[in-house]
Design a protein around this nucleic acid. Structure first.
Lengths: 154, 154
DNA sequence: ATTTACTGGACCGATTCGGTCCCCTATCTT
DNA sequence: AAGATAGGGGACCGAATCGGTCCAGTAAAT
């Protein structure tokens, strides 16, 4: 279905939650679970992952919690997927050589590489800040293509 | 990892194989398995799927096989994913309403819809014909974005 | 009638996914 | 110093999906 995992979704929702607060605000896992209505263990797990990816800063102990480490306008969705899903590689072979035993035979590798980077570009053009403030930037100048796609998908 | 399934990959390779032949060429499952070096049962399965999606025409009996039903220049990658993976919906909620129990609460749905259609647009801009003939069209006019993405991903 | 080849679906092992739980360590408060 | 709070790092588990196989049925050509 070409979908990102739920966990990744959760992670992004959590980051968006931080991006809505004043910069540097600290929130703990319990608070996050409450305001996002997600189960606490899941929230905890994802916050750990995000901290490991250096997107959040963690503060232990009482009064501890997490805070956003970077400017939301500077974090791209591509980066988030990179951190949460371990990269964007539509097929094995786009992740690098040696993944496919037909690298010579296959004729569609190179075009897929281009497609992959196109998708990556689309994702790299949206920032966390834009995710939080709706109705903003038109993402990418391919509206005509976009509407064509909508038609075809219809 | 945001990847398409291997089966989908196989399906596309098979279609590409047809696109390389003169229009209307009929090939059977065994021939396809040989020339693509994929296991016969898999090839058979995917060809069935592709026929079901009306991308291939099937011909039973002796001298039977499959042939491409449409002009390769007219079939987009987005359509292929649609047929083989059942759609392109980065998250459940982009597939339609009722998939997520926090539709009101959530603030990032609408931006994700835009991202989703952007990705879809990227995929709708590449045709099967372009997949077969390498080094052609630059896909989409977002090279600057693409290189930016490459940098960031790096 | 026989052979060829697609059709439809069941089936299976392996992996991944979504989610939970527990014990450890660090920090703050009193 | 002691206790409470909160993150860190895992293991762990059931369920769903994935990748792949197999087989009985049907249609067409010879």
């Amino acid at each position: 279905m070409l979908r990102i995992s739920k966990l990744t979704d959760y992670g992004i929702v959590l980051l968006a939650r931080f991006a809505q607060e004043p910069a540097g605000t600290t929130l703990n896992a319990r608070e996050m679970a409450e305001t996002t209505a997600l189960p606490m263990p899941v929230v905890s797990k994802m916050l750990k992952t995000l901290a490991g990816a250096e997107l959040l800063r963690s503060q232990r102990g009482s009064k501890g919690g997490y805070s956003l480490l970077r400017d939301p306008a500077d974090v791209t969705v591509a980066e988030l997927l990179e951190a949460l899903e371990g990269g964007v590689a539509l097929m094995d072979c786009t992740a690098g050589p040696g993944h496919c035993d037909q690298e010579e035979r296959c004729t569609v590798r190179e075009p897929w590489q281009r497609i992959n980077s196109t998708v990556l570009a689309a994702l790299a053009n949206v920032t966390l800040a834009e995710l939080v403030k709706p109705g903003s930037a038109p993402l990418i100048g391919i509206e005509s293509a976009s509407s064509a796609a909508a038609q075809r998908a219809e």
